[in-house]
Design a binder for these strands. Sequence first.
DNA 1: TCAATAGTTTAGAATGGTTTTAAATTCTGA
DNA 2: TCAGAATTTAAAACCATTCTAAACTATTGA
Lengths: 141, 141
Amino acid sequence: MTRPFANALELLRAARLRPTRQRLALARLLFEKGDRHVAAEELHGEALAAQMPVSLATVYNTLHQFVGAGLLREIVINPGRSYFDTNVSDHHHFFYEDDSQLRDIPGDSIAVSNVPSPPEGGSIRRVDVVVRVEKAAHKGR
Amino acid sequence: MTRPFANALELLRAARLRPTRQRLALARLLFEKGDRHVAAEELHGEALAAQMPVSLATVYNTLHQFVGAGLLREIVINPGRSYFDTNVSDHHHFFYEDDSQLRDIPGDSIAVSNVPSPPEGGSIRRVDVVVRVEKAAHKGR
DNA sequence: TCAATAGTTTAGAATGGTTTTAAATTCTGA
DNA sequence: TCAGAATTTAAAACCATTCTAAACTATTGA
């Protein structure tokens, strides 16, 4: 259910990407521990720490290929850094502004209604909802 | 109604920012032609074109001060570039992926329901909805 | 009016995540 | 095993944004 592919190799085959050492390593790091929101440099650090040397350029290449193959979703919330979400099912996000953390909101707990059709034409590809959360409630001025 | 302040000067006073030549110029460009979504470099170009020389650093400073004063809202959708929205009322956005254009969706035409409370605690500061639109409907593979 | 001071602007350098380049390496199929 | 295609990589380039420190400007109070 939360395991769309038995292993990294199968996953790469399905995406029609050659199963290189680097891609296998990154796929394992990404998909073998449940849902994650990772930035490129973070993943790079993890790979090095796990004795799986991969260049940063390859991390970027691979992340983008995975997004293209529908294995990852890219999330942009803050300027200057992208996150990659291993959960590609229909869902939304909490964003904790204090420490820039993301948390999934299950897709069926939230509902967006009355979305008008785009004025300039075109078709709706996705609706993203970000609920911005701040830790302390500093109200007033 | 769409004119919260009679003029740029009044607007700066309300924001408790000194009415310098540069800020007045930028305020006029931003607020005297209806709702806009502008990037910093874009606004800088407009200022130069309008014979109101302002440095890019000042454009950034001013935009952030305006955001702090609640005159602008910053919108991050694509990595690497922020947009500033002169409409600070409660509303959401269409995002045209083909040409990176933003269009407002009136706040009352859309409704987000059943937002759960944040699991890690904290208070909800804002809910942002982005409807991603692609021009052509290239379906299938 | 005039300084003193606090706030503002600016050119230019620095930053930092991401992308590009071009050469070396690795994979695949025949 | 070999040729061609895909992939990886270090290093450089990119580019929006931020920082720095010096010059400038607005404001205040005497």
